[in-house]
Design a protein around this nucleic acid. Structure first.
Length: 268
DNA sequence: ATGTCAGGTCATACCTGA
């Protein structure tokens, strides 16, 4: 018998972001988490599936409508909505320096504009991958500025592949040469925040690391050698409605898990 | 430097990206 789903707070909307690292290979774990956590909206990254191999039927069976932007082998993003179909507003980041990479999708769900993004990792550096990361970040920042200025209720959720501060990683020294922690990467993230966005997990949890990623290497999860890479940025109107935020670490602990855990928020 | 995943193919072993 399946465990009874947790009952959500009445009148709240729960929005999650999860780098699933292969939606077909890890579908069973994704469905188990959806049944247990019952998020209303889910932003997924690293589908690692072409558009025609997205497991739509299984998600519909689980009660979720979906829009997605697939790509063979790598990347791929999606937005799920419990009990409704997300209304697609944009597939692909406008002006993406490499439009062949599926890293951005945007949809309206229940009166909120939701973006699911997968920012380039950027390793190794220096080199074209790090250049692409920074170029993508700048392009995204332009789009984000327009969204913030619109005054619409917006959440920008996804794997930003940025460790915002030294508090967001177990051992800053061990990743000193990594693209995730370079001053240029952090400055780009800070510039987006400075537009007025609220970093939901950090705002409600100022004293906890709130890691969302643990490497498969060197037993990182057991040592809690993690990083906070997955972020939910809220527009001004939504920030005023923020009531709860967390990370479902148990999902990362499961056999065959993604190297990320879902991060979530609840809005009034 | 180390080492572990997934998905793909000049496929049952090796490659890339992370």
């Amino acid at each position: 018998m399946a465990p009874a789903p947790r009952v959500g707070h009445a009148g709240r909307v729960k929005i999650a972001t999860y780098n699933v690292n292969g939606i077909n290979g890890r579908l069973a774990g994704l469905l188990a988490w959806l049944a247990d956590a019952r998020p209303d909206v889910v932003c997924l990254q690293e589908l690692k599936a072409p558009t025609d191999r997205f497991p739509e039927a299984a998600l519909v069976q689980a009660g979720y409508g979906a829009v997605w932007h697939g790509q063979s082998r790598w990347n791929g993003v999606a937005i799920l909505a419990r009990g409704s179909d997300p209304v697609l507003t944009r597939r692909g980041l406008p002006g993406d320096p490499d439009p062949a990479q599926s890293r951005y999708i945007e949809a309206a769900v229940g009166g909120i504009l939701v973006a699911s993004l997968y920012l380039p990792n950027g390793n190794p550096l220096p080199g074209p991958k790090f250049d692409y990361k920074l170029a993508w970040f700048e392009t995204f920042a332009v789009h984000a500025a327009g969204l913030f200025a619109s005054g619409l209720p917006v959440v920008l959720a996804g794997d930003y592949n940025v460790i915002p501060t030294d508090f967001d990683v177990a051992s800053p020294r061990s990743v000193a040469g990594n693209a995730l922690i370079q001053p240029e990467s952090r400055a780009a993230f800070a510039r987006v925040l400075a537009q007025g966005w609220t970093d939901a997990l950090r705002t409600l949890n100022p004293d906890k690391p709130m890691f969302t990623f643990w490497d498969y290497f060197r037993n990182a999860f057991a040592r809690d050698a993690g990083m906070r890479l997955d972020h939910l940025l809220l527009s001004a109107g939504l920030a005023a409605r923020l009531r709860a935020a967390g990370v479902d670490r148990a999902v990362r602990a499961a056999e065959g898990s993604s190297d990320h855990a879902p991060a979530w928020i609840e809005l009034d």
